[in-house]
């Protein structure tokens, strides 16, 4: 039983069924149309939930019956890759906070530099390439600031 639960399609099927159920239940709170209007605000979400329920079942069954399943094994996941992923999302959030605080230029240079290293460049401040990465970050920041801030009048 547990081996089936690790299959991607089975997980997706269950997630789809949960989503269908949630949409159906929440749409029950929408007002019911009066008079001869048979369709109201809940009609479309309900139709979507029916479709999702059927598709969820199809995907889950397909996932159980398939002979070449694609599985998720958390123990085999590379910790370095997961760390990189989380760090990237945090960098994106920090950069967005920087924009909110009107600190575009400084946050952009820092985040670009961080992202360059997260996406595969070597991290060595003494290396000449570091200066190249820094230069690239500054140039791209200036270009984006000029295009969006000056040309498109975005409040950066």
């Amino acid at each position: 039983m547990f081996k089936y639960l690790m299959r991607k399609d089975v997980i997706l099927g269950f997630l789809t069924l949960i989503a269908a159920l949630w949409i159906y239940v929440t749409s029950n709170h929408f007002p019911i149309p009066l008079g001869n209007k048979v369709v109201g605000p809940a009609t479309f979400p309900k139709v979507i939930s029916y479709f999702l329920a059927v598709l969820g079942v199809i995907i889950a069954i397909g996932g159980i019956l398939t002979k070449s399943p694609s599985t998720i094994d958390f123990t085999k996941m590379d910790k370095k890759d997961i760390t990189k992923l989380i760090a990237s999302v945090i960098t994106v959030i920090l950069f967005s906070i920087g924009i909110k605080l009107k600190l575009f230029i400084i946050s952009s240079v820092i985040c670009l530099l961080l992202f360059i290293f997260l996406t595969g460049a070597e991290w060595n401040i003494k290396d000449k390439k570091f200066l190249l990465h820094l230069f690239y970050s500054v140039i791209i920041t200036i270009c984006i600031y000029f295009i969006f801030g000056e040309f498109l009048h975005v409040d950066l």
Binding site: F95, I99, C111, L112, T119, I140
Partner: peptide, 10 residues
Amino acid sequence: LPTITLLSIV
């Protein structure tokens, strides 16, 4: 990739 990310946010 960093440039695409920045362009997406801005």
